[in-house]
């Protein structure tokens, strides 16, 4: 059962920022799909939970040249997205019930090293829009995730939304022990292929380090070359070399490394 906390429901972004910046022991509550289990298991507790679930400014989803995803967009809302890459990620998150409530912004802010969205957003090169006591900021996704459960968010700040372009081509390959489990490893690729040549590719992985990371050597290898079997094979090999996977009860580092290589190969094969 959850330890006691003070509950403050806010209806606007400034209100949320105000409470979060005033109260040191406050945490924002969005969908709660990661937070509530931690509270229940008593591995986390907060003096104040600021329920931002009803803040309308955070609930938008716009598809234009740029895709704009409000922080409160729930995973399921992207299951049938016109952007294929987003669909591919969304359907692999948790189970349908978790996807009903879990939010994209929450996933980013929580920065679970095995969360799906942070790696996917790395591949997309998204811009994280934050709101805080010092106003709004735009943080490149590469600078946003600082470590396991650590982000560039400062006190009183929260994720307001994300912006990125839907990649011309993309793929998300995830290996998990059980259907709804966290990934052993997963690889997200966003790319453009013109006249048989990769004009650019962003490749991100989870389970390749203590946090989601870009596989820059893989990206470099792909740049400007045709996506042949040989290129894919050397990209897969480079991924394994570049990774510093963690070990836990789910998998050894060595096995994760091997899986990562396969995930890169298969993701590139699907482009």
């Amino acid at each position: 059962m959850i330890p006691r906390f003070e509950y403050i429901r806010v209806f606007s972004l400034p209100e949320a920022v105000d409470v979060l910046s005033r109260r040191e022991d406050a945490a924002p509550l969005a969908g709660g799909q990661s937070l509530i289990p931690m509270l229940k298991l008593r591995v986390a507790s907060y003096g104040v939970l600021v329920d931002i679930g009803r803040v309308r400014e955070l609930r938008y989803l716009r598809y234009g040249d740029v895709v704009e995803v409000g922080a409160l967009v729930r995973h399921y809302e992207l299951e049938e997205s016109p952007c294929g890459f987003l669909r591919g990620v969304a359907v692999r998150i948790g189970d349908p019930q978790v996807r009903s409530l879990g939010t994209v912004g929450g996933s980013l802010a929580h920065a679970d090293p095995f969360g799906d969205w942070p790696a996917a957003m790395l591949a997309l090169g998204a811009v994280v829009k934050t709101a805080g006591p010092d106003g709004a900021r735009e943080v490149a996704i590469d600078d946003f995730v600082k470590g396991p459960y650590q982000t560039a968010l400062e006190r009183g700040e929260l994720v307001a939304g994300l912006e990125f372009r839907c990649p011309p081509r993309g793929a998300y390959v995830k290996f998990a022990r059980r259907h709804n489990d966290f990934a052993l490893t997963a690889v997200a690729v966003a790319a453009e292929v013109k006249e048989g040549h990769v004009s650019w590719a962003r490749v991100a992985a989870l389970g390749a380090a203590d946090r989601p990371v870009r596989l820059r050597k893989v990206e470099a290898l792909l740049s400007g070359v045709p996506l042949t079997a040989d290129v894919i094979a050397s990209a897969a090999e480079a991924a394994a070399k570049e990774a510093q996977p963690p070990a836990d009860f789910r998998a050894s580092a060595e096995y994760r490394r091997a899986l990562l290589s396969v995930a890169v190969k298969r993701a590139l094969g699907r482009l």
């Binding site: 509950y7 429901r9 509550l29 709660g32 799909q33 509530i36 289990p37 229940k40 329920d51 679930g53 399921y76 349908p96 019930q97 978790v98 009903s100 409530l101």
Partner: peptide, 13 residues
């Protein structure tokens, strides 16, 4: 209208 796990939702939410 959506399935949710009611053990993972605060009643106030």
């Amino acid at each position: 209208g959506r399935p949710v796990k009611s053990c993972n939702v605060l009643a106030v939410q």
